[in-house]
Structures are given as structure tokens and as C-alpha cells.
């Protein structure tokens, strides 16, 4: 078991831990060590994607969707992690959270954090590289099409994400 000194940022807070198992999975670090249980555990083998978080290499960098159940913390040293707990700012929900609520997108809600974080990364990508409106459904499918939800049938997740993309200035070109 190789130990490392860990230094990463989670939801704008610095976390420094010495002598920590570098193979420790991010989902366990978040849930067991930090107490952030919004990131869920389901399959543990990076298939269902409920554990998705957003990771930036550097401040202002691309938000990359990452599966916390298989990502060792050693891969995240120096990086910036955003979890579902970090989406709302200054008491204001993120537009995706609001859209998920207003569309009744989820039921049991266990998959919702993964859908939120993957679509959060999609919005980041579209801010940098807007796409034609006609391509929006395909982009959503690319971003969350592999996410498993057992309750909902997916319709309202996709609808909510589409609403946010179309109502946020600068994400689509026409």
C-alpha cells in the first residue's frame, strides 16, 4: 500500500492529508473521510456513473466528468474537484438543480448527483465550444447517455438539461 501526501481542492476548500493510501478511491475519500456523501456509490466498477464528479486540472480549466468509484486519490493530487454539494453558490441553486426540480427529473434521487455533475461538465464544454441547437440532444446523449437510472426512464433528466442549455446564453450557436 503506497501512501502519499494528498493536496486537493474540493468545492473550493483545500484538503491536505499526509500519509494516505494513494489507491484510496475518491468515493471513499469523499464519503468516509470528508463526510461529503452527496457522491453516491452504486456499481463500484465505473459503469453506472452515479458517482460522477467534476474535476479540473487547474483553476479555469475544463470540467471533466470523472467516476469517483474507481479513481484513486493519487490521480487527483493538486486538482480541483466539484461534487454535488458544491453546485449551489451563495444560497442559490445551480440552474441545473433548479431544472431538475422543476421537471421532476428524478424519483428516488440516488442517480441525480451523477446526472447533475455530468451535465455540469457538459455546460462547461458548451460555454467553451457552443454547438448548433440541432445537436443539443446528441450532446446530452453523449454526456449522460451511459448514466443508469432505474426509476425515471430518463425522459425528464434529458428534458431538464436541454432546457438549461437552451436558456443559458452562449451555449448554442443557432
Amino acid at each position: 500500500m503506497a501512501t502519499i501526501d494528498l493536496d486537493l481542492t474540493i468545492n473550493d476548500e483545500k484538503y491536505r492529508r499526509g500519509d494516505i493510501d494513494g489507491d484510496l478511491k475518491l468515493v471513499d475519500f469523499l464519503r468516509q473521510e470528508v463526510g461529503l456523501t452527496g457522491t453516491k456509490f452504486c456499481c463500484g466498477i465505473a459503469v453506472c456513473r452515479v458517482c460522477t464528479v467534476a474535476v479540473q486540472r487547474v483553476p479555469g480549466g475544463h470540467q471533466e466528468a470523472m467516476r469517483a468509484c474507481t479513481t484513486p486519490v493519487s490521480d487527483l493530487n493538486g486538482k480541483i474537484v466539484t461534487t454535488v454539494e458544491g453546485l449551489a453558490k451563495d444560497g442559490e441553486l445551480h440552474p441545473l438543480q433548479t431544472a431538475f426540480l422543476e421537471n421532476f427529473s428524478f424519483q428516488c434521487g440516488y442517480s441525480a448527483p451523477g446526472f447533475l455533475m455530468a451535465s455540469y461538465c457538459l455546460l462547461d464544454r458548451l460555454k467553451r465550444s457552443p454547438i448548433p441547437t440541432a445537436d443539443v440532444d446528441d450532446a446530452i446523449q453523449d454526456a449522460v447517455g451511459q448514466h443508469v437510472c432505474r426509476c425515471t426512464g430518463y425522459v425528464r433528466y434529458h428534458r431538464a438539461i436541454r432546457q438549461v442549455i437552451l436558456s443559458t446564453p452562449g451555449l448554442v450557436t443557432a
Binding site: 461529503l36 456523501t37 452527496g38 457522491t39 461534487t83 454535488v84 454539494e85 453546485l87 449551489a88 441553486l93 438543480q97 431538475f100 426540480l101 422543476e102 421532476f104 428524478f106 434521487g109 441525480a112 448527483p113 447533475l116
Partner: peptide, 14 residues
Amino acid sequence: RYRIDGLAKVTGQK
């Protein structure tokens, strides 16, 4: 307007 348990679920509460 939305589920009574909705806010807890989209903000990752325990």
C-alpha cells in the same frame, strides 16, 4: 412545484 424531498436530493444531503 417540485418534490417535497427534491431540494435534499439535488443538493446531496444525507
